[in-house]
């Protein structure tokens, strides 16, 4: 029963990584940039939900909607102010800017909310699920997290596959210049991508702080890096890859903590990444890039 219980919490943690990784992977796929500020958008989302429930007394669901709205807007603003002027700049300049935005968000949060951790009350207050005569207890947060991940991945896959904007995203991702010649507004497509990724980051933030209820300005940094790792692990640019990478990463982390060493769990996670990348440089589900001229 111990193993099963670890496995489930691994999948749950991995689901959070997966939701964050989706934001990394979509932005990378379409704008060809790594948005290292993505982890900090998670933090902003968590604070929004916290403020709405703790100070204004909103219902948990309403607080999630607020967090998503604020983060979506934040994502669009960050893209417009920080990244759009660098559309034709070197990728190093964009990367440095992204790191700058990350520190900027953390420090703004520090000014507003101070460094004292806030204790986040889980927004999910359903009963735990008891299986096998109470030998296996699965908390409602765990269940909701896994369900949210499945719904999000399914919804996003449908959007990218069938909707007009989703098809435009695929076109821009494959050939930006040809997409413009079709009449696709590339800037708008990139903006929508940031909006979706940041909205999902808000959901991830609320779920993360419901499972690990200490809220502070750096809360998004480590999960952000892990989710980035997950996106690379699964094959950056691929939506199913982000989900697979995220869940595997979560499972490896929790099982590593349980059976090998709590201190070494992060080292184990990153070692697995290095090994996978040595064997498959494009990640588990990454496409081999081949061009036909």
């Amino acid at each position: 029963m111990g193993f099963l219980s670890y496995l489930i919490s691994g999948i749950s943690l991995g689901s959070i990584y997966a939701i964050i990784a989706l934001g990394y992977t979509m932005v990378y796929g379409i704008a060809k940039m790594l948005n290292f500020a993505h982890g900090d958008v998670i933090m902003v989302g968590a604070y929004m939900s916290f403020m709405a429930t703790a100070y204004i007394g909103w219902s948990p669901l309403a607080s999630v909607v607020l967090a998503m709205a604020v983060c979506t807007l934040l994502g669009i603003i960050i893209e417009r102010l920080a990244y759009k002027p660098l559309r034709n700049a070197t990728s190093l300049a964009v990367l440095i800017t992204a790191i700058g935005v990350s520190y900027f968000l953390q420090n703004i949060a520090l000014l507003i909310w101070s460094s004292n951790p806030k204790s986040f009350t889980s927004i999910i207050s359903l009963d735990s699920l008891r299986l096998f005569d109470g030998q296996l207890i699965i908390s409602s947060v765990t269940l909701v997290t896994i369900a949210a991940c499945i719904v999000i991945v399914y919804g996003l896959t449908m959007i990218v596959r069938y909707s007009k904007i989703g098809k435009a995203m695929r076109a821009v991702s494959e050939d930006k210049e040809a997409a413009q010649l079709m009449g696709i507004d590339v800037n708008q497509t990139i903006s929508v991508t940031f909006a979706i990724g940041s909205g999902l980051a808000a959901v991830a933030g609320v779920l993360l702080c419901s499972a690990y209820p200490l809220l502070m300005p750096t809360v998004g940094a480590m999960p952000g890096i892990k989710a980035f790792t997950a996106a690379v692990f699964g094959g950056i640019g691929s939506i199913p890859g982000a989900m697979l990478g995220g869940i595997l990463l979560g499972v490896i982390e929790i099982l590593g903590k349980a059976y090998i060493s709590t201190e070494l769990s992060d080292a184990i996670v990153f070692s697995v990444l290095i090994i996978v990348l040595l064997v498959r440089p494009t990640g588990l589900l990454g496409k081999k890039i081949s061009e036909k001229v």
Binding site: K164, K167, A168, R170, A171, E174, D175, E177, A178, A179, L181, M182, G183, I184, K287, K292, V293
Partner: peptide, 19 residues
Amino acid sequence: GRRIFLQMTVEENLEMGAY
């Protein structure tokens, strides 16, 4: 060099043309 969207279907390519 044609620059069609290789990962998309023929019909999706045409839909993009009519974006």
